[in-house]
Nucleic acid binder design. Structure first.
Lengths: 150, 150
DNA sequence: TCCTTTTGGTTGTACCTTCAACTATTACGG
DNA sequence: CCGTAATAGTTGAAGGTACAACCAAAAGGA
C-alpha cells in the first residue's frame, strides 16, 4: 500500500518538476524535449511519425499536434516519406539541434538531482528491473518503446 | 540511463492505463478517484481543501476545479469551515460514498495487475524506498503528502 | 484487377491542468 | 489597535491531451 501511494505521488509530482524546469529554461515541455532528444539521436536526425510515437510513448494524435507546434517554431520539419506515401518523416532542424544541445545539460542536471543522485547504484539496478516489469505489464505486446526490453 | 528511460516511460504510460480503466468503468479520472478515496478515509469523510490538496499531491486551483465538478455530480459537497472563515471543507456525500465503494475493487485490481502483482515482495520494499528517496528530493520541505515520510 | 482491410497520419472538439489575478479572512509587528 | 503580510480559496483564460472521425495509401484476397 505504501509502495503504491508513493509511486502514485511520484507519478503526480515528478512530471511537474521536469516540466517547469524545461518550460522556465527553454520554453519546452518535457514531452517536447523528449521528442527533440529522440530525433537528435536518430540516423540523419529523422524518424517516421510512428517510430517517433513509439520511442516517446505517445499516441499518434498527440505526437502530431506536438510536432506541428514544434514545426511552427522551426525546431522540426516534416516531409513525406519517399518509400511509403502514407508516412511522414520528422527531421530535427539546425535550430532544433542547437536548442536540444543548449537545453540538455540543465535537464540532465534536474533528472540527476531528483532521481539518479538520490539513489544508490543498487537502487538504480532495482529501479531498472521494477520499471521493466511494470512496463511489460502495461504494454504486453511490446508495441511501444523498446528501451525497456530485457 | 536505462533506469531513467524506463521510469520516464512508466510516467508516461501508467497514468493513461489507470485513467482509461476508471473512465470506462466509473466515468472518473484517476485523480477524481483519488480525491474521493482520500475523503472516504478521512474522519467524517470531510477534509479542508488545503489538506485534501496535500494528500492528493495537487495544487489548490486544480483541486478547486475538480471538486467543483464532483460537486456538480453530487459526489462531494462543500461548506465553509466553522473555525476558519477563509477555509472550505469538502465532504463526501452518500452518493460519493456509494460511488467509491462500487469503483474501488476494479481499480485495485487494475493496480495489482499492472504494478503490485508483477513485482516480488522484495521489489515492493525496494520500490517503497526508491520512491521515498525521489519524493524527498522532489518535495524537500515535506509540504505535500505525508504518506512517504519514513 | 477490383474490392476490402489495414496502416499511417491529421484534424476538431471536449475536457483538464496550469498560471496569473483576485477576494476574503486571519496573523503579525509596531 | 491599525496596517501589512500571509493564508485559503476561487475564477478565467490559455495551452495541452484524449478521443473520435476522417482521409489517403498500401496490402491482401477473390
Amino acid at each position: 500500500m505504501t509502495a503504491w501511494l508513493r509511486l502514485a505521488a511520484v507519478l503526480e509530482l515528478l512530471p511537474g518538476v521536469l516540466d517547469s524546469q524545461l518550460r522556465r529554461d527553454a520554453e519546452l515541455s518535457h514531452f517536447d524535449y523528449f521528442v527533440l532528444a529522440m530525433l537528435s539521436e536518430a540516423p540523419k536526425r529523422t524518424l517516421r511519425m510512428t517510430a517517433l510515437a513509439q520511442q516517446t510513448n505517445a499516441t499518434l494524435p498527440r505526437l502530431s499536434h506536438v510536432v506541428k507546434r514544434l514545426e511552427d517554431r522551426s525546431l522540426v520539419e516534416r516531409f513525406p516519406c519517399p518509400e511509403d506515401a502514407r508516412a511522414t518523416n520528422a527531421r530535427l532542424t539546425a535550430t532544433g539541434w542547437k536548442k536540444i544541445k543548449a537545453t540538455a545539460p540543465g535537464h540532465v542536471e534536474t533528472v540527476r538531482q531528483h532521481v539518479i543522485d538520490v539513489l544508490t547504484p543498487e537502487q538504480i539496478t532495482q529501479l531498472t528491473d521494477i520499471t521493466g516489469a511494470i512496463l511489460e505489464a502495461v504494454d504486453p505486446e511490446g508495441k511501444l518503446s523498446s528501451v525497456y526490453r530485457r
